[in-house]
Simulated scan of single mutants.
Amino acid sequence: MAPQTKEERLALINENLEEVLDPQIIEEVLDSGRNPKIYWGTATTGRPHCGYFVPATKIAQFLAAGCEVTILLADIHAFLDNLKAPIELVNQRAKYYEFVITEMLKAVGVATEQLKFIHGSSFQKSPEYVMDVYRLSSVVSEHDAKRAGAETVKQSNNAPLSGLLYPILQILDEEYLDVDIQFGGRDQRKLFVAAKDWLPKLGYRERAHLINPMVPGLQGGKMSSSDEDSKIDLLDSPETITKKVRKAEAAPRVTEGNGLLAFVEYVLLPTSALLGQKEFRVERHEQEPLVYTEPKQMYEDYANEVLTPQLLKPALSKALIALTAPIRAAFEASPEWQEVTTKAYPPPEEKKKKVKKVKNKGTHYPVRKKDGQGQDGVPAAEQQAAQNQEAGSETQAA
């Protein structure tokens, strides 16, 4: 049941966010008596990883606050971003994303029938939308388009023009999805700021923007779908999860940029709260377990070596294996999902190993004409004896 007061709804919407742009827009919608409409978009490129639990947690909170939530499977965006998703695979990857995001949300207790999934290609090819792409392209400079997509679109010295179209499409999506709010990670901030400036140029209203923190990867830096060592896939086996966590970078006492601690703060604690008991439990040999309900004490214990990497890693592995177990079970029970996975992410073709051809260097003896015969029909044995005798004579002469 949605909270009854405006303050309660705002508290849920804003919880654990890094920043809110134009919060007054959200308040005005609530004051009007209708439910805020929010969209979260994801480009269907690499396989989603456990960092996706961060937006999933917020989506659950938006629903609990009575918001109408749309998930945009941005298939055309995926193609525009430097061909990260070949056009032949875009449709299959969008289907894969819908499968995996649905099961991920179910794993944290979200009633997925309240969600609306939309493929970008279902409206981004309409005449009206395409005309607005042309209109916005005429009033946005190359410099501003490149700047808006700097942290989202792959940049290079001779980048394709599609990378400049990417931010234009994302900003127009706010209008065509008819939402009040766009939600995304910190890497989207420049796009969100550009949206405030660009949409009014076409006579469209501004939207509010909710910015989520980004969880560091297992080796530091951003958790990325394209970097296997930085992420844990939502379908990774328990053995793989344990192995990746064991190898993760986690210097003793260092809390800044610690991907494991951040994962507990932004994924394990919020998801355990959604499932009914907010806690992260760390077992200790012959001692009482450490039980954390808030991240502050966990960070302090880690800085003081009460909580060590040797204690943290197995506890995190255990919690993550339990969290992802329903997703793996759903995958194993769905032949359709398995088929889509194979089509969306076909295994790389094995390169045929070149067989090194052994060069026939021959011998220093004359080539035989036929079995037992040397050059000019002389038997090979006699020819060899003559060569030996000749070599001996040369030695004596010397």
Rank of each mutant, 00 (worst) to 15 (best):
V306L: 12
V282G: 11
K146M: 13
E336F: 05
P346S: 09
L30T: 11
G276A: 00
I211H: 04
R47V: 14
A145E: 03
G184H: 08
P213S: 06
A60G: 11
E19D: 12
E382K: 03
K95V: 00
M223A: 03
F123H: 09
Y97V: 07
S334T: 03
Q219H: 07
T271H: 03
V267A: 05
V264K: 02
A398M: 13
S237N: 08
D75G: 05
V69Q: 07
D301H: 12
S237W: 03
A329I: 00
E27K: 14
V291F: 06
S156T: 11
L311K: 05
K356A: 14
Y204M: 11
R93D: 02
V90K: 01
V245H: 02
R368Q: 15
T271L: 01
K201P: 00
H77K: 02
G372M: 12
A11S: 15
A262T: 08
R205E: 15
R9D: 07
V139Y: 13
Q277K: 15
Q114I: 00
P289W: 05
A56Y: 07
V20S: 05
H364V: 11
Q61L: 14
T308Q: 05
T242E: 13
L17W: 07
L268N: 08
T70A: 02
L275P: 07
H209R: 10
S317L: 09
A251Y: 11
H77F: 04
R284A: 14
T242W: 05
A398W: 13
K37D: 08
M131R: 15
K357W: 13
T342G: 12
A11F: 05
S137K: 03
R135A: 12
D236W: 01
A107W: 06
T342Q: 15
I181T: 06
L320E: 14
H49F: 03
L172T: 08
V245D: 00
R328P: 02
D180F: 06
T152W: 01
G217H: 04
G46F: 00
G66P: 02
F192S: 09
D180R: 11
V100E: 05
I241F: 03
P36K: 00
E113N: 12
G362P: 08
W337E: 04
E339L: 10
T342D: 13
S126M: 06
C50S: 13
L63Q: 01
K356T: 15
E349N: 09
K359S: 09
E27N: 12
T271P: 00
P200H: 02
V291A: 00
V355F: 04
G257N: 04
E283V: 03
Y52Q: 10
I13E: 01
L165W: 08
E113S: 14
G257D: 07
I181Y: 03
L17A: 11
E15R: 15
S126A: 08
M1A: 13
I181C: 08
E228T: 08
E151S: 14
P216I: 03
S317W: 06
L269E: 11
E339N: 13
E27P: 01
I211N: 06
S138G: 10
K370P: 00
I26A: 10
D233C: 11
K125T: 14
